[in-house]
Design a protein around this nucleic acid. Structure first.
Length: 213
DNA sequence: TCATTAACACGGG
DNA sequence: CCCGTGTTAATGA
């Protein structure tokens, strides 16, 4: 592990976890770099390591009949995947796929360590529970979107969320990609985007959308 | 009414 | 030419 990796771990977790635990993470974790589009975890995979996200953005999706999948939640720096943890603890196959939305790094720690830390460190227990809560809340938002929101609201929400996690005001995706993620047709996405543009909320370009306001 | 599918034309790389 | 985009017509829920 390089010095910058160590610094990265301290920067991401130093405020939440106790120093002794940070040292344990540094000595046991394995750093893995990933590029946009990489699958970090896939369906039916047995997971033996817990990913602690240091840099980048990871999208966690559920399987779907057509391409794209249903987005459950996003992970950003300092967060970890609740689904993966529950799979590991129960020694079950992964029910989800984790795909990189933006390039970055994860620290992978063995499940055995994570169980040990649960008993040993209060800050670790608090961190794990906090993460479960956050993921669960995001999951509720995703369910609300499917059950109650109209497609135009879902699209606006999607644009805002995507812009937020990538920390930019432009969304570099094609209408087709957006349609896949929202489980609708490109015709609808193109039409709704056009009306948003006419309302002055966005600016449309080829393969990217600029958010105004 | 509104979404989906198929089909087509336009234009930029 | 290929791909992303914008639009229309037909059909269905």
């Amino acid at each position: 592990m390089t010095n910058t990796d160590r610094e990265l771990i301290k920067a991401s977790f130093g405020k939440i976890l106790e120093d002794e635990l940070i040292d344990e993470i540094i000595s046991t974790a394995e750093i893995r770099e990933f590029e946009t589009g990489d699958y970090l975890i896939d369906f039916n995979q047995y997971v033996k390591r817990i990913p602690l996200l240091l840099e980048g953005v990871i999208k966690v999706v559920r399987e779907d009949m057509d391409e794209g999948g249903l987005v459950l939640y996003f992970l950003e720096g300092g967060e970890t995947c609740a689904m993966t943890m529950s799979c590991c603890m129960g020694h079950k196959k992964s029910e989800v796929r984790a795909v990189a939305e933006a390039a970055g790094k994860v620290a992978m720690v063995p499940v055995s360590k994570m169980e040990e830390w649960m008993a040993k460190y209060h800050s670790w227990r608090a961190y794990v529970i906090e993460n479960y809560n956050n993921r669960f809340n995001e999951l509720l938002t995703a369910v609300d979107g499917l059950a109650f929101m109209k497609m135009d609201e879902r699209l606006e929400n999607y644009l805002r969320e995507t812009a937020k996690v990538t920390n930019a005001k432009t969304v570099s995706k094609t209408h087709q990609e957006i349609a896949n993620e929202l489980n609708t047709s490109r015709v609808v996405v193109s039409r709704l985007l056009k009306t948003l543009e006419n309302k002055g909320m966005i600016k449309l370009n080829r393969s990217s959308i600029e958010l105004l306001n």
